[in-house]
Amino acid sequence: MDKKDRFTEVVKTNQGLIFKVATLYTNNLQDKEDLYQEIVFQLWKSFDSFNEQSKLSTWMYRVAMNTAIYNLKSGKKQVNTIPIDLETERFAEVLDKTEEEKIKVLYEKIQMLNLLEKGIILLYLEGKNHQEIASIIGITISNVGTKISRIKDKLKSQIKTT
């Protein structure tokens, strides 16, 4: 299997991860598509430097989330991108109304958090343990616990105020 085939395999297996990061860090479909492509591009660029010893998902989250941050500044630039179909309607076909509503509320809650909290909560929801979160985010393991409980409080206070 050559490099390109390996990359295609890796990216296709983890396309959900890219989709979720792209959705969480953008507010509209065009930006989401742009960010999605940028993440795939950055993953390809760094595929050579990916150290097989480190966890594949750690590398992917790191590249995807860093790209999302860098992209925040340049979101309005017009460049040629390859058309891809990230239409939420297509995704919505497999969801019922209650699920759709729940996901909407979920994204709204996450959008209210700051960038650091957003990154932590994304990894937490993805089922990462504190050690993995600490490694990707770059904070201590004990701090991850503190941050998560603060986020919990923040979410609770949001419920009270809404």
Binding site: K4, F7, T8, V11, K12, Q15, G16, F19, K20, D34, Y36, Q37, E38, V40, F41, Q42, W44, T67, Y70, N71, S74, K77, V79, N80, T81, I82, I84, D85, L86, R90, F91, V94, L95, E99, I103, L106, E126
Partner: peptide
Amino acid sequence: MSKKIDKQEILTNQFIEKMTHKKYKSKLNK
């Protein structure tokens, strides 16, 4: 939600091929 997203076929081999051939222009820092 993740279970359902994982079932979706978002990326095609052709799309990834285009990425790897540098037909895509990175927009960061532009």
